[in-house]
Design a binder for these strands. Structure first.
Length: 429
RNA sequence: GCCGCCGUAGCUCAGUAGGUAGAGCACCCGGCUGUUAACCGGGCGGUCGUCGGUUCAAAUCCGACCAGCGGCGCCA
């Protein structure tokens, strides 16, 4: 048994091989039938000729339908007429499952593809996306292992909110109610006191009724937290991590990127260091572009898109006003109206993929910020305790992995970056 | 939560002076010795999203509902 990518190598020319896979396309013409077969590694055209094989097997080959599963044996040949100039001259054609009719044809609409996502996953486009996604997840973890981080796990069922409380999913819990996690950050913070540097990859859930191409209700959140790190050191870690992921994808998935129509030359320029811009300067830039934005405004989607179209690289935005960020961000000692934080905005209009910053580590400051945010200290007793016992400066970040995949692949919708998207209106398949 | 849009064959769509539906693809049958999303001929295939209203008559006009898509706000 051989894989298709393997037998496409020149040393296989003239050799007999057996492959298993699925029918990508088939065309029959009387005494010959052309069956293009795919497996997870590639595709190859197989040629069935009546005179070369048992009559009943030729009949099977001639009448085979799209996406049927088959096992074939034949001789690898070089032929200019074949797509890719390699083909398999068949001696045997066996069928595991012959399909009546496969729902995916050349005409397909967006909604239909979401309804039959379980079958659309087999398409070459989606196969490429999933391969790239796999590289992104692997290289994210590899980067942090390489920097001596430990991978940790936090609970998905939690009692407290990390971000705004209104976007929590409530689930029944033995007669009470708990929430699905929005972020593992607070739990990661508990673990830096023993492990110092930690990361996690986990789903996060947001009950926001978002109807945009960049939101999912269930998404994959990659988060890191590092003891002793300031905001700037965290940004340096992140820009190296993003550069590493892009480099790995280019190395392992260049064919997949090309199939998706992604401009590789553009991706190759996304290497660290990434530019930094203060929030106040982003507002100035926005105003110079004719946008109606003022200091203290959060950037709207249109504004963010207009501004990031100016960027030639992913760019960190720092020094946001404290009013725009969650309570745990550490005020800048030099300008307490702002916090030591950063968002990383991807270029090409893709926008925010990372949010992070330095965490408040002084007990009294955290208690004051909780009060100012209208939160009860009792609900966050364990988070506050961390500031009571051996507290230290530290920073962290959260990365939207699906958004990263979307940007790297150049996709129009985040739903195509994940196999089974969960949105406000879609729970199936 | 707010605004906009769509729903006709398995899929992509066409279908107005209101007269109960059609094409291409898929699938089936036949033809073809090199196809490249093959081609040629034939065939199968529809409670026109649901419910109600107007009308002699509704895919078509009106209303409600259901389902989904897009944009904003919010965020990763």
């Amino acid at each position: 048994m051989n894989s298709i990518s393997e037998i496409l190598k020149s040393e296989f020319i003239g050799k007999d091989v057996t492959i298993r896979g699925w029918v990508y396309r088939s065309r029959s013409m009387g005494k010959k039938a052309f069956v293009v077969i795919r497996d997870s590694t590639g595709i190859i055209q197989a040629v069935a000729e009546r005179s070369n094989m048992p009559e009943e097997e030729f009949t099977l080959a001639e009448g085979i339908t799209a996406e049927s599963s088959v096992e074939v044996t034949g001789t690898v040949a070089e032929d200019k007429r074949a797509p890719g100039e390699r083909e398999l001259r068949l001696k045997s054609f066996k069928v595991f499952c012959r399909n009546e009719s496969f729902p995916v044809t050349k005409d397909k609409g967006e909604e239909f593809l979401l309804d039959i996502r379980h079958l659309w996953l087999r398409s070459r486009e989606f196969t490429s996306i999933l391969k790239i996604r796999s590289t992104v997840f692997r290289s994210f973890a590899d980067y942090f292992y390489g920097q001596n981080y430990y991978q940790v796990q936090a609970p998905m069922m939690v009692s407290t909110a990390t971000e705004g409380g209104s976007t929590l999913f409530k689930v029944p819990f033995f007669g009470e109610e708990v929430n699905l996690t929005q972020s593992s950050q607070f739990y990661l913070e508990t673990m830096i006191f023993s492990l110092e540097k930690v990361f996690t990859i986990a789903p996060s859930f947001r009950a926001e009724k978002s109807r945009t191409r960049r939101h999912l209700t269930e998404y994959w959140h990659a988060e890191g937290e590092a003891a002793w790190f300031g905001n700037e050191e965290m940004m340096q870690e992140e820009e190296k991590m993003i550069s590493h992921i892009i480099k790995e994808v280019i190395k392992d998935n260049s064919e997949d990127l090309e199939r998706l129509g992604r401009d590789l030359n553009k991706l190759k320029t996304y290497t660290f260091p990434f530019p930094r811009m203060k929030y106040s300067d982003v507002i100035k830039l926005g105003r110079s572009l004719g946008l109606d934005v003022n200091y203290g405004d959060d950037l709207g989607a249109d504004e963010e898109r207009t501004i990031t179209m100016q960027f030639s690289k992913p760019t960190f935005i720092t020094d946001f006003p404290a009013t725009l960020k969650s309570f745990y961000h550490r005020p800048n000692p030099e300008n307490p109206e702002t916090v030591l934080c950063h968002d990383l905005l991807a270029p090409e209009g893709y926008g925010e993929i990372i949010g992070g910053g330095e965490r408040i580590w002084e007990l009294d400051v955290l208690q004051r910020r909780l009060r100012e945010s209208g939160l009860r200290e009792d609900d966050y007793y364990w988070y506050v305790d961390l500031r009571r016992y051996g507290s230290i400066p530290h920073s962290g970040f959260g990365l939207g992995l699906d958004r990263l995949v979307m940007w790297i692949c150049g996709l129009e919708s985040i739903r195509d970056a994940i196999p089974f998207p969960r949105t406000i209106r879609r729970m199936k398949p």
